[in-house]
């Protein structure tokens, strides 16, 4: 049995699952780590909501330019082949289904693939949504990256989200430190576990889950 994944291992796993040539938007926070593990041969083009395709790594020293920032308002660089466009075009790329993958953090994901990641709903919390709702419904694949459990041990994969929703039935995969979950029409299928067995995972999340499928014969024989 492999160990529970660290944040960087999780980012590496997500990166390795992104198909070659994909257009990808990485959300703020943990998802940004994924860019550290994308390889040149994957030829992935990064989109940033504030109007750029072909975003490069974070800028440093003399490269820092106040007119060239990412969605988190961090200074970044441009790669050869980059393009700039206005906000309506940028969000048209999302809403129009042109992005292959977006990777987002989450407070909760439901078994139906509902996402809650923008607002705690607490009375004192000033709400801010940014591009989260557009990303959630726009990309062909919506990957969530999060720790499976809250600090007090409750599963963030839930039957029904209790936090305000970001999007309905939009998440396609959930990458966590303890397991990767696939949202399917039949329910949530566990792809693999890390540092726990499938039976232990069932105890932790207290939800009906479909067991990992055995490797197809053809793949084993190839």
């Amino acid at each position: 049995m492999t160990e529970r994944l660290t944040r960087n291992q999780l980012a590496q796993l997500v990166a390795s699952d992104i198909t070659s040539g994909a257009y990808v938007n990485l959300g703020i926070g943990q998802p940004t780590l994924v860019s550290n593990y994308l390889t040149a041969s994957q030829n992935v083009t990064l989109h940033t909501e504030n109007g750029m395709l072909g975003m490069g790594p974070a800028a440093d020293g003399e490269e820092i330019d106040e007119d060239l920032i990412n969605a988190g308002k961090i200074p970044v660089t441009e790669l050869p082949g980059a393009s700039y466009f206005h906000h309506a075009d940028s969000f048209g790329m999302m809403r129009g289904g042109h992005l292959d993958v977006c990777v987002l953090g989450a407070f909760q994901v439901s078994v139906a693939g509902d996402l809650a990641n923008w607002h705690t709903g607490e009375p004192n919390d000033i709400p801010a949504v940014g591009g989260a709702m557009d990303l959630a419904i726009g990309a062909k694949d919506v990957f969530v990256m999060m720790n499976l459990l809250t600090r007090d041990g409750r599963s963030k994969l839930v039957h029904t989200c209790t936090y305000p929703l970001t999007g309905v039935e939009c998440v396609t995969r959930v990458y966590t430190d303890l397991a990767v979950f696939l949202v399917t029409p039949d329910g949530i299928r566990v792809r693999e576990t890390y540092g726990c067995t499938f039976e232990e995972l069932l105890q932790l999340v207290d939800l009906p889950l479909l067991a990992p499928q055995r490797e197809p014969e053809s793949r084993l024989n190839s």
């Binding site: 206005h86 906000h87 309506a88 048209g92 940014g130 989260a132 709702m133 557009d134 726009g138």
Partner: peptide
């Protein structure tokens, strides 16, 4: 405060 998802904000203006 009227909070609007960012893409809706851009498209409402457009």
């Amino acid at each position: 405060l009227e909070l609007v998802p960012q893409g809706n904000l851009a498209e409402r203006i457009r």
